[in-house]
Structure formats: C-alpha cells, structure tokens
C-alpha cells in the first residue's frame, strides 16, 4: 500500500523543487508559527465543533486531539521531509480513514489552515508563506492519498478485480 501516494509525494516534491527551495525555509518559521499554535488549534476544533457531523466525531476527545495536533504542527517545521516524514503523515491519513471521517472535512480543514498560516506569515518574507503553504499542500496530498488508496482497496475487495485492472478499466472512461 501507500506506494501510489508515495510516488505522488516524491513527484510533487520534485515538481516544486520542494527540498531545494522550501524545506530549508521551514525550520526558521517554527517559532513564529508555534507562537500562534494554541489559537490556531482552538479555532480548528472550534470550527469542527460547530459542524454537526464533525462535532460528533471529535466529541469527548478534543483535548487529546489538540495535543496530537500540536505535535503535527511542530513536525511541519522540522526540516526533513523524507521517508520517515511520509510514513508518519500517511499513518495520520489512515487514522482518519479508519475513523470514517469524510475526506471533505480534511479538505476544508486544510483550507482553514492555509488561511490561518497566511494571516501569520503575510507579514514575513513571501518565501515564508510560500514554504508553509507548500508543506501544507504536501500533507494534504498524503492524507487524501490515503483515502484514495483505501477506496481503491475496498473497490478491489468487493469486485474481486485487482487494482491494476481497475486502473486499466478507468483508462477507457
């Protein structure tokens, strides 16, 4: 598993010259962004709690989720985005898949995070905001990739068709 998403991740990094241009900028942003982490995380879970479906999903574990969210945000700015980074992020994707959280929520919450980071970093060098948006996009690519692979796996399981056949069939669509 994870192979298709891993390939997309590597290709996306190469396409945007991520390791060359953005990765070196990110560690320098950690302190600036983490100063606002509490506020962002509170707003993040506040927004989820206002949605009737999301509220049910996070009910009773908001404090625990806030703690994992902090760790997740810190790791965005660690500066290394190789295999170990990918694996951790893919597992986060799988956790959301298993929790049956609709991918739509991950998309809107990523959009929310983009705006929150922009608000903080707009006052900095444009390279800062560009780098923060680039890593958020890579994280979203990985999480959404985990959803996509799960759908392919389930489709394969229910139809008995292997994934290569499913891809071939779609190429005729």
């Amino acid at each position: 598993m994870a192979q298709a998403t891993k390939e997309s991740f590597e290709k996306a990094k190469a396409f945007n010259k991520f390791d060359e241009i953005y990765a070196p900028v990110l560690p320098g942003l950690k302190d600036i962004v983490m100063k606002h982490q509490d506020a962002i995380t509170d707003a993040f879970y506040g927004a989820l709690s206002n949605d009737p479906i999301a509220a049910k999903i996070v009910a009773g574990r908001v404090d625990q989720l806030k703690a994992t969210h902090k760790v997740w945000m810190e790791e965005l700015f660690n500066g290394t985005y190789g295999d170990a980074y990918f694996d951790r992020r893919y597992k986060i994707g799988e956790t959301h898949v298993k929790a049956k959280i609709a991918p739509y929520f991950v998309e809107v919450i990523t959009s929310f995070l983009r705006r929150a980071f922009a608000e903080i970093l707009i006052k900095e060098d444009p390279a800062a905001l560009q780098a923060a948006l680039a890593i958020l996009d890579l994280d979203a690519l990985i999480i959404v990739g985990a959803y996509h692979e799960d759908r392919m796996r389930r489709m394969s399981e229910v139809t008995g068709m292997n994934q290569k056949l499913l891809e071939t069939l779609m190429s005729f669509g």
């Binding site: 139809t159 008995g160 071939t168 005729f172």
Partner: peptide, 20 residues
Amino acid sequence: GDATAAMGAALGSLAKRVTT
C-alpha cells in the same frame, strides 16, 4: 482488443466474487 480484455477480466473477477 484492449477494452475487451479489460472488460472480460472485470466480468470474470466479478463473476468469481459473486460465485463465492
């Protein structure tokens, strides 16, 4: 040929799944 091969394989896979 190519489409027939893909659809034939799909038919076989699904038929096997239903049989099981």
